[in-house]
Measured scan of single mutants.
Amino acid sequence: MTTFKLIINGKTLKGEITIEAVDAAEAEKIFKQYANDNGIDGEWTYDDATKTFTVTE
């Protein structure tokens, strides 16, 4: 398992979430479901060097 981080730069929600996932594809699926569940819709980026996803509304 690898640790992945999501940085949320939303209009109403900001913060960071860290999860353990098998790979970046699994982490992205989990993070996008979390964002969808919380009404966050924005532009996604991923930095493989730091294993960090960012979503900006």
Rank of each mutant, 00 (worst) to 15 (best):
G39W: 06
G10H: 07
T2A: 07
I8E: 01
T2D: 12
G39R: 12
G42I: 09
I8D: 01
T12A: 09
A21C: 02
Y46S: 04
I40S: 12
F31H: 01
T56M: 08
N9E: 07
E26V: 05
M1K: 05
I17H: 09
Y34H: 10
F31M: 08
T45L: 09
F4Q: 01
T18Y: 12
V22C: 03
L13K: 07
Q33W: 03
A25V: 13
M1Q: 10
A24G: 10
T18W: 12
K5M: 03
N38G: 04
D23K: 08
A35C: 02
T50H: 07
E28I: 10
T12R: 03
T54Y: 12
K32H: 12
F4T: 01
D37V: 08
T52Q: 12
V55D: 00
A49T: 07
N9W: 09
T3H: 12
Q33V: 14
T50I: 05
E28H: 11
E16A: 12
K11A: 04
K32G: 04
A35W: 06
K32P: 00
K11D: 11
T45R: 10
V55W: 03
A25P: 05
A49F: 11
V22W: 11
V22N: 11
I19V: 15
I7L: 03
K5H: 13
V55R: 00
T45E: 15
F53V: 01
G10D: 14
K29G: 03
Y34M: 14
F53K: 00
Y34T: 08
V22Y: 02
E26C: 02
K11Q: 03
K14M: 07
I7G: 03
A24Y: 12
A35F: 04
D23H: 07
Q33E: 03
T52I: 11
E26S: 13
Y34N: 06
L6M: 14
V22F: 11
E43Q: 06
L13V: 07
K51S: 08
T56Y: 09
K29R: 08
W44P: 01
F4K: 00
I7A: 11
N36A: 10
T56V: 15
L6Y: 01
A49G: 09
T2L: 11
V22M: 08
K5V: 07
K14Q: 03
D48M: 08
L13T: 15
T3M: 10
K5A: 03
G39C: 02
